[in-house]
């Protein structure tokens, strides 16, 4: 790929999604965009980039965005954050929201649905404590294609084995040929919406818990700050933010501080 083509496409992707692509990621660009070029019957990446430069085909740009922003996901990814949610955050919500009996969770990069469905499973497993409660899980992603997969709730044998304990697979999924279908118990608990994290987050409404894990690592400093500050406005004083284990707010935003002993969990600094 010519350096000027790489620069053009990485700038466009950065502007539209916040994703940062350095030149050492040229292989990623090529491996993900070749299938888009093939699907459209184009002769290769040069034709694809020429089409994007012409800016006449908005769908092509959208397809490129989707190809670049889609990441593989796991059920109960990294295990620990979900244990913290079940053992620490959920009991707090049950106690502190006992009056209104409701809370909302946002998965900011829901991808193909594994994270929101993992949370729906935890809430189902704790159903006896949640009788009479209204709980909402909202999953957003910039990619329409991946959200369609999430909504379908249909996973390959390979996908369900990435993180889903066998007992939970049997309880919350039904087998359909070679695939596994999320059943209505969890599917009905999650709403999906297409959303760009760089847009104003206010239309999403308030949330008690936000999962924004392994997303900001792809953003530049300015956009990381923008997203974190945006999230902080959606949370109540005791709201919590989950980020990836390798991510940090240090030097990015002073709105959040790490919760001691709970790796990847952040609370608001305005809460003292």
């Amino acid at each position: 790929m010519k350096p000027e083509d790489f620069d053009f496409i990485s700038k466009l992707i950065n502007e539209q999604s916040g994703l940062v692509l350095t030149r050492d990621k040229a292989y990623l660009l090529e491996s993900r965009l070749m299938p888009v070029a093939r699907k459209r019957g184009l002769n290769g990446l040069e034709d694809l980039i020429a089409g994007m430069r012409a800016r006449v085909d908005k769908e092509l740009t959208q397809e490129v965005m989707e190809a670049m922003t889609t990441n593989e996901s796991f059920f109960f990814r990294d295990i620990k954050p979900f244990e913290i949610f079940r053992e620490n955050i959920l009991p707090h919500l049950l106690q502190s929201r006992a009056d209104k009996k409701s809370f909302r969770i946002w998965c900011a990069a829901a991808s193909s649905g594994q994270e929101p469905y993992s949370l729906a499973i935890i809430l189902n497993e704790e159903a006896s404590k949640l009788a009479g409660w209204r709980t909402e899980i909202v999953g957003t992603d910039i990619s329409v294609d991946i959200l369609n997969k999430a909504k379908a709730g249909l996973y390959s044998q390979f996908e369900v084995q990435r993180g889903l304990p066998i007992q939970l697979l049997l309880k919350y999924f039904t087998k359909q040929g070679d695939m596994w279908q999320a059943n209505s118990k969890i599917a009905s608990m999650v709403q999906y919406k297409e959303y760009n994290l760089l847009d104003s987050l206010l239309p999403l409404g308030k949330f008690d818990v936000v999962f924004c894990r392994n997303v900001l690592i792809y953003f530049d400093q300015k956009n990381k700050t923008k997203v974190l500050e945006g999230i902080s406005t959606l949370l109540p004083d005791d709201g919590v933010l989950f980020m990836g284990g390798a991510e940090t707010v240090l030097g990015i935003s002073d709105k959040f501080k790490p919760v001691s002993g709970q790796r990847g969990v952040y609370s608001l600094t305005r809460n003292g």
């Binding site: 109960f76 084995q161 990435r162 304990p165």
Partner: peptide, 9 residues
């Protein structure tokens, strides 16, 4: 990866 995740679980 599957073995690792399952063994961790």
């Amino acid at each position: 990866e599957i073995i690792q995740v399952k063994f961790a679980q």
